[in-house]
Amino acid sequence: MISIRIEDLYDRYAHLLYRRCLALLGNPADAEDALQEVFVRAMRAADSFRGESEPSTWLYRICTNHCLNLIRSSRRRRLRQERRGQDPNLITHTTAEQVENAAMIRELLPAFDRKAQELAIYYFVDEMNQQEVAEAMGLSVPTVRKRLKKFIAKAQKILSKGADFDHPAQK
């Protein structure tokens, strides 16, 4: 059994996980809650971690699953976001383009299956390259590329229809 120090996980990955939670959930308060929940789950599962995957991969997967489950309750979440609004002070280092892209991905994700959602989060939210995505998901690079192209094609179709996509700047 591999020993994992929760303090080390925090030092190395907390800011990355927070950035991902913020991008996926859309507001700092929910991102804080999600980050805490990810670490709680990691701590509870630490005994069963055997080191056959990287701690980062393991932690990212917990985070992905948790955030996707939260996004699934998107209607309730959207109402809360509208009440709270975005807090610009806490995301000042994120560019407008990143905020826009994150909102776009957040809205697109429910139209895809779980594997495609995971892929999109690694590539578009975490901004991994295709090799890193392949390693994180246990896929080959050509498979990742093929699935990304498929994701993009479907995403563009959805966006071109102008479905009920909520652009943050329009609110």
Partner: peptide, 17 residues
């Protein structure tokens, strides 16, 4: 709209982080 494949000649943002 930047939902597209990126040029990968640079290290990824993830790697720099």
């Amino acid at each position: 709209m930047t939902i597209q494949l990126r040029n990968e000649e640079h290290p990824s943002r993830h790697l720099l982080s």
